[in-house]
Nucleic acid binder design. Structure first.
Lengths: 207, 207, 207, 207
DNA sequence: AATGAATGAGTGTTCATTCAT
DNA sequence: GATGAATGAACACTCATTCAT
């Protein structure tokens, strides 16, 4: 496979299928629990053929993580400093929740990596991630300073949004076990979180 | 080891050491990523000797999980239906956060199991866990109904507490990567979460 | 296998058998051509059991090489600076030839490693080996300077002895192919080399 | 490639390039250590394209060996029965040494094959090779019988020339490790070997 | 109660060769 | 002629578990 050439249609297709299969298996079993054989089967390829497109098991995994981090941060990037603060933050909460709802495997893949101490993406966390969070935390701090949001620590506010939205994807079995089969966790979560953050961020009006 | 006899002091000691070693390794690497060899070494035992006390690798893991779940739910059990609602809930938040702070490995072990779909403790979730949560949710709902707490869905409120406290243990590397080396995540978290839940749960006073 | 403890009888036995099997296979097929399976079979062990005694294929190979180099240099070490020069050198030639005759697999193993550029024992060559050769070359140069041996370059004289003795082991198939089945290469070689070096080293007497 | 047709210029060129690449890789790593991929890359061809010109890896290897043997024996063929014995033999030594110096990869390729027991050229050794050596040995024996050379076994004399000249190519790393970086092994070897064989072959004059 | 020894079933990866275009 | 794609057969090494003492 000529590495420097433009990928052919087949290459793009196979790599996409391998990524999809890898996501399925890695998110369900973790890096160590996944086997190349299983991923290859899920991708409809023979094991050596899979390794023709991704040289190692780790290569599939890190490729997934790298793409994931980008998508994961997009909603935060979309936070508009010029927007109306409360609307911006609620929109962020919603976008993040929808991301977790629509891409739960990605969420779990990411959670698993962090849980193990981020052995393969540690650098990204203190690099891109940190820079972006710091920048947005500054914006939020500005909004709070001018009284348009109730004051709190912006970094921890962001952590809260992450924790509360991802919880529904990462701990899905627990949520379902507790709520039972009838209720709709995601719909309830959205209503609850919107109320939650509205109440949390609405500045108190002096009487 | 005569299974039906009372365990000797040595047996209790060995099993404790194996559990401690298993917790260390399983929480860091997951079930599949951990090797019996590594656990035996951490426990200061030979591999066959370890397997004399716990017949299989899985036995160590499930033993840890079973004990863990109990400890994990104790703070929720301690929620006093007769107590002052706001104080009770804030105390619960604090206890849960301290648990995560003081036993981060247990938190990660649990998170890993749930993340993978709880293959080995699925039953416990819809059993003991669900019953306890339902009971406490009922208590909280009562408090809200009488206007002593701002109204919201009690189940999701409990999820929020879980998500927000465990986040600091389970995603510790990410939290540290974002906050940098100088700040003290746990102290900040406590302050932030107390404010957070106070604001959230304080009923609006009609003017 | 406790690495720091004294080896048990079984360990010594198994390791000896593995070395013997490794020598047989590596000398015949080279490092890359040999398979762990084949060595294990030759040693009468299962593959994982072999790897219980030597962690990797390379470990067997380098263990063999290290022991080999020592044995290989012993005859040179035995060269006595106080002895009678001609007798000492002829004794060295004989000893080296007998070594090649009695341990042809060791000779081929060594030759194979050197032939490939000594990827795994390069350091030893410019270390121990070089020091010893330099020392002995000095002794021989002394003998030549006092007229007790015909003069020549001592380093190249040593190379000659190596080349001529090892040739009969390393190129054995060629020697046998040329000489046919009836002749006895080793006996002829000994006679020929003694004559050869006697003639070569006898100082010319001034008439 | 129509096998029965005369090869085109392109075909000749490609096969030459493959041979050159094969020589480079095979001589450095041996048959088993070499990969078709590496040879193809060295030849600037794709792997399937290389296999279009030589059907198998072995085909490249045996092609090289066959051509090599011919070239290897040319200096011996050039030994002129009508020439002056001492001059002829010294010329042979020189030619053989220059061959080793100028074509060390060929020498190592050959040495590797013999070392492994000549699995792919065993027949050639007891065929062409033996016939030629026997013939030349007869010539040398004649020279010795008439007193124009010091007597010795002609076959072993030929082995000596082979061993001493090829040693500098096949064991080059060892020679360089012992001599250090400053000395010029090939120049020294030539001087040494000429002296060596002159002394060896000069008949003793009865006084 | 303890451990050195042993192994069957994997597990990621390599590689010569073939297929299809 | 040329190459991207595919694969069967290996191959080195791992690991949970069992055996023997």
């Amino acid at each position: 496979m000529a590495k420097d050439e433009a990928p052919t249609r087949i290459q793009r297709d196979r790599r996409r299928r391998i990524r999809e299969a890898g996501l399925e298996v890695f998110s369900a079993k973790g890096f160590r629990g996944a086997t190349v054989d299983e991923i290859a089967q899920a991708a409809g390829l023979s094991k050596p053929n899979l390794l023709y497109y991704f040289a190692t098991k780790e290569a599939i995994y890190t490729d997934l993580l790298a793409r994931l981090l980008k998508a994961w941060l997009d909603p935060l990037r979309a936070l508009d400093p010029e927007g109306e603060p409360m609307a911006e933050l609620l929109a962020y909460v919603r976008r993040k929740l929808h991301l977790a709802r629509d891409f739960p495997r990605e969420s779990r893949l990411f959670a698993g990596e962090i849980l193990r101490g981020a052995p393969l993406m540690g650098a990204d966390l203190s690099g891109d991630l940190r820079r972006l969070v710091d920048a947005r935390a500054g914006v939020i701090a500005g909004w709070m300073a001018t009284g348009r949001l109730a004051p709190s620590d912006p970094h921890h506010l962001i952590f809260s949004i992450w924790a509360l939205t991802q919880h529904y994807a990462d701990f899905e079995v627990q949520v379902r076990a507790v709520l039972g089969d009838v209720r709709d966790p995601w719909a309830e979560a959205e209503r609850h979180l919107v109320t939650h953050f509205t109440r949390l961020l609405t500045p108190l009006v002096a009487i």
